[in-house]
Amino acid sequence: DEVTIHLGDKTIRVDGLDKELLEILKELARRGADEEELRKEIERWER
């Protein structure tokens, strides 16, 4: 499953996201997290 996250004018595509992680990323994005913060969160989950 590829998920596309839209952040204002930026788009991040991620393969096979965990549903819980997806919810966390959506919440972070709502709070104004930037792409770098979201990537760090994704990397934390992948470990």
Rank of each mutant, 00 (worst) to 15 (best):
residue 7 L to Q: 06
residue 19 K to E: 13
residue 13 R to W: 12
residue 12 I to D: 03
residue 20 E to V: 14
residue 44 R to Y: 12
residue 43 E to F: 01
residue 5 I to A: 05
residue 39 R to Q: 07
residue 2 E to C: 07
residue 6 H to E: 13
residue 16 G to I: 12
residue 14 V to F: 15
residue 28 L to T: 01
residue 39 R to V: 05
residue 18 D to E: 10
residue 32 G to K: 01
residue 22 L to G: 04
residue 40 K to L: 08
residue 8 G to A: 10
residue 21 L to S: 01
residue 36 E to P: 05
residue 9 D to M: 02
residue 40 K to E: 07
residue 37 E to S: 08
residue 13 R to T: 13
residue 6 H to Q: 15
residue 14 V to Q: 05
residue 21 L to Y: 02
residue 24 I to Q: 05
residue 13 R to L: 12
residue 3 V to H: 15
residue 18 D to I: 06
residue 37 E to Y: 07
residue 22 L to S: 04
residue 37 E to N: 03
residue 2 E to Q: 12
residue 29 A to T: 07
residue 43 E to W: 00
residue 27 E to W: 01
residue 14 V to S: 05
residue 45 W to F: 09
residue 47 R to E: 14
residue 18 D to W: 06
residue 26 K to N: 13
residue 21 L to R: 02
residue 22 L to T: 06
residue 12 I to K: 03
residue 30 R to E: 12
residue 43 E to K: 03
residue 28 L to M: 15
residue 8 G to M: 04
residue 32 G to S: 02
residue 6 H to Y: 00
residue 34 D to S: 15
residue 2 E to I: 14
residue 30 R to P: 00
residue 22 L to R: 10
residue 22 L to D: 01
residue 45 W to K: 03
residue 24 I to L: 12
residue 29 A to W: 06
residue 33 A to T: 04
residue 31 R to A: 15
residue 31 R to E: 07
residue 40 K to G: 06
residue 43 E to Q: 05
residue 11 T to L: 11
residue 30 R to G: 09
residue 36 E to A: 13
residue 35 E to G: 05
residue 40 K to R: 13
residue 4 T to R: 09
residue 31 R to F: 07
residue 20 E to N: 10
residue 19 K to G: 07
residue 12 I to A: 02
residue 5 I to Y: 00
residue 44 R to T: 04
residue 24 I to C: 03
residue 36 E to C: 02
residue 12 I to Y: 01
residue 40 K to C: 03
residue 17 L to T: 08
residue 1 D to F: 09
residue 14 V to I: 14
residue 1 D to C: 15
residue 41 E to V: 11
residue 36 E to R: 09
residue 6 H to N: 14
residue 13 R to C: 07
residue 43 E to M: 03
residue 11 T to A: 12
residue 45 W to A: 07
residue 29 A to N: 05
residue 7 L to E: 03
residue 24 I to K: 12
residue 14 V to N: 03
residue 32 G to T: 01
residue 16 G to M: 11
residue 23 E to N: 10
residue 25 L to F: 01
residue 45 W to E: 02
residue 15 D to R: 09
residue 18 D to K: 10
residue 4 T to L: 10
residue 13 R to H: 09
residue 41 E to I: 09
residue 20 E to H: 13
residue 26 K to F: 08
residue 35 E to L: 11
residue 35 E to W: 13
residue 41 E to D: 00
residue 7 L to T: 05
residue 42 I to W: 04
residue 22 L to P: 00
residue 15 D to F: 00
residue 23 E to G: 10
residue 34 D to M: 07
residue 36 E to N: 11
residue 40 K to M: 07
residue 25 L to V: 03
residue 45 W to V: 05
residue 36 E to V: 11
residue 28 L to K: 05
residue 1 D to E: 11
residue 34 D to A: 10
